[in-house]
Design a protein around this nucleic acid. Sequence first.
DNA 1: ACTATCACG
DNA 2: ACGTACGTGATAGTC
Length: 849
Amino acid sequence: MMGEQMNRKRIVLIDGNSMIANAFYGMPSNAADAVIRLIKGILERREADYLAITFSAEDGGGTLTEKALLQQKERLKELSDSLSISVLSEKGYESAELLASLAKSCETEGGDIQIISEDKRLLQLVRDHVTVHIPSMGEEGLVLKSYSPADIEGEFGLEPVKLKGVFSLTKANGIGEKTACQLIKQYESIKNLFDHLEEVESLRIKEILKATEKEIKEEEKRNTLRDDCSLRLDDSNSISEAEIRQIMDMDFVPADFPDEENQESLEDFPVHLVTDFSEAETIFSKCLPDSRLGLHLVIEDKAITALSLCLGQAQCYCIIPQGFLTSEYLAGKAEEISKKAGHVTVLDLKSQLPFLKLEAGSPVFDAGVAAYLLNPLKDSYAYYDLAADYLDMTIPSRADLIGKSSIGRALEEKRDAAVSCIGYMSYVAYRCGEVLPEELKKNGMDTLFYEIELPLIYSLYSMESAGIKVERDRLKEYGDRLKVRIMELEQKIYEETGETFNINSPKQLGEILFDHMKIPGGKKTKTGYSTAADVLEKLAPDYPVVNLILDYRQLTKLKSTYADGLAAYIGPDERIHGTFNQTITATGRISSTEPNLQNIPVRMELGREIRKVFVPKEGCVFVDADYSQIELRVLAHMSGDQRLINAYKQAEDIHAITASEVFHVPLNEVTSLQRRNAKAVNFGIVYGISSFGLSEGLSITRKEASEYIEKYFETYPGVKKFLDGLVAEAKEKGYAVSMFGRRRPVPELKSSNFMQRNFGERVAMNSPIQGTAADIMKIAMIRVDQALKKQGLKSRIVLQIHDELLIETYRDELEQVKELLTEEMKHAADLLVSLEVEANVGESWFDAK
DNA sequence: ACTATCACG
DNA sequence: ACGTACGTGATAGTC
């Protein structure tokens, strides 16, 4: 039937039942039309040679019980008929089973099958020429998520055929998808799992399995899809070009299903697609020393997928590797033109440096970082956000154009959309290169940008490239040790509470503690009882089991986030190369992701141990340096409070001195309690003081807390005046400002909501302090990084943790590095109080702290 | 996707 | 009367 073509016939099968149900959710009144629109989209894009829609023969016992739903189903059948789209069903078979049968027969006959259904059970069918698309709600409305065998492997870690077991297990209350995948990975099938039930390590899981064995096995039957129906596709199911045209001509509901529909803007925005070598050569030859470029390399899997280049309003190119025009050639050319051109603007310089290989000081402008300075509160600085904010243009977003697909894939499947998406990138960069420098200047942030943020990009890139060495085996041992103790604690907790439950579930834990065990003082949150550490700690003296739970929490946190979490990021070079983000925080700090290397445990002994696996490479040691109370010193400087400044001039222990001055006792008579209180007040000041916050932090009454604050302000009147001034300034201007001109908008100050406004005031007090400290650290980082390179040293900064820098130091460079690091940090800013730096040397991060 | 929790400065 | 300390990111559970 499929003919003897070389190319596989493209067969699209739509699960009428489940798609109706899915569309019904969003728009009950015209669910059928939504499905028809989806079909029209497929036909319009010429994505199918054969198309059919399937329905279960029986309705009654199935899921389609609601009347309205049934109506929609009938309407969909009618509409399909009128468009001569094949409607298939067979007695005794569910819709999903028809799909399974058809996929099987078509696949053996050499078809390429796309199944569209909301029924996850169909994922079992995925194989080389069978793709399943599952609709889900994305940011931009409904999107189809596609599953190839590799996608299944990536998401579940299993072959598609084994998914049945996973789906059956997750029906049991208490087993999540992750656990289910792990069990199936280990035991292959449900049957084998129950045959080896005694081997299951977790007592809790074992209990659940025993209790729900029957349900699970029944569920497995439901998840077993028959694929033996007699229906076959034949030429009556094929779609001819004439038929498509006819369908398209039929007046029908406007398409608001995903994809497409954005090409009209191509009219006034021409992107020239270039795939020809000599044409590319001609374009590159136009990049001269007096040129200004907008440039963006699309980098996927460490190779260039596309080069977007803009030389002027009407000269925007999307250059794609093809034939002689290789990805490697484009890489070389990109580097060459970016070095030759008089000025280059990019959207995100750090991401481009692996290919552009520029050095600090190059005439490059980073539009994303500039936009971040202009408004650090945005959550994206993508091309369409920049266009909307600074070019007064509304252009389709990447998701509008190509959904969640990679650019590389979109170039194959949705060429036009991908080309405009790529084109926009350099176009927006180019235009931002005209607008944003002016904008920065107007807002007094040009020095901040050119002297700090721009050079910092290179230092962050250097730090990411360096990465940090982590001892894989030792980390594994650490995780294994935790596992043993976790399982012991788990047992004890089950014994003490007399129940077997998921300790990680705050819901279950709260019910066990406060309902079953009737422990008093259960504080309710929105969703139930709070089981947060500070709540449990208060119960610990009376209920020993609570201590076990706290220990369990600590250990599982260490295991999942750190032992297992970090292990997943160790590369083939034995190092972790995290990402340091420059455009995330509201205050100007950098942030760290994948993994977060700025929250590695240190406060608790057991957690701190993790730092032993962070080690310098052969021939190196770590030098770690951190600022001592940089934020309080910034406060002393910015407020100009003479007494606080004097305190720092003599200071050994600032918290003790504060206590001495605030409580009017000689320094050597300050009690540890007084010191602790003074320390909390110091923190409170930096956070934007409030008596409520302080009382929480110190477990004292609000009244006592306000007294402390009052005394503090009496002692340091300059600080009070300064903080009041910050709030007033932020109210007037609408933003708070750091010493180096960094701004943080504080719209909350205008809020009519008391709580919001209060928050705004604290932000107005905290942001300039936290922001100035961040500025100073950035200056230090740049200088240290540049000094290392200028002096020809091989040592490199490997981590920044807000007030701390870690340098992997070659042993023969140790003295020089120690000196340079502390000196640059101390002198990064000239304040009324000195900046003090503590430096340590060690064979691991643990040792160097 | 959202909430609760907890790791860091 | 109101009811939170400032700034982050990852994980697990729940819906």
